[in-house]
Amino acid sequence: MTDTLHYEIVSPECLLKDAHAAMIVVPGTDGDFTALPHHAPMMSTIRPGVVEIYEAEGAEPTRLFLKGGLAQINPAGLTILAEETIELDKVDTDDLNQKISNTKEDIEDAKDDIERSALEKKLAWMVALSEVVHAA
């Protein structure tokens, strides 16, 4: 029997996935990392990017966009606390571009640093999403 990695993806609204996979690529803040079974315990924040779930070795990965969050690997498996997930094939490119330009304008009009940093965070994930969509 080949080893599999138990993983969970949890969003604030519900438990999205609770299954096993051969390996998972996670977009960590300090760079992507691949979680394999028996990975050393670690905790990392996630930058906006794509999680790739390989159900079996060599198989096509399931791709899921995360707006950010936290990944935690412990002996029981991988837990991803996702802020929000977006399925890549449901992205409307025109709508997204529109939103990006709107947010850029909002940043220029921002009244204070707190508002600006919130908007910049919003822009970061939208830009990351559009890059991913264009690359596909």
């Binding site: 960590g28 803040t29 300090d30 990392f33 050393a40 315990p41 670690m42 905790m43 990392s44 924040t45 950010g68 936290l70 935690q72 412990n74 002996p75 029981a76 802020e83």
Partner: peptide, 22 residues
Amino acid sequence: LGGAIYDYEPGETEILEDLLPR
């Protein structure tokens, strides 16, 4: 936490900074 010693990436403080507002 599973009785394990964790590697933190970037660091404990940064993770907390991210986690607390959320």
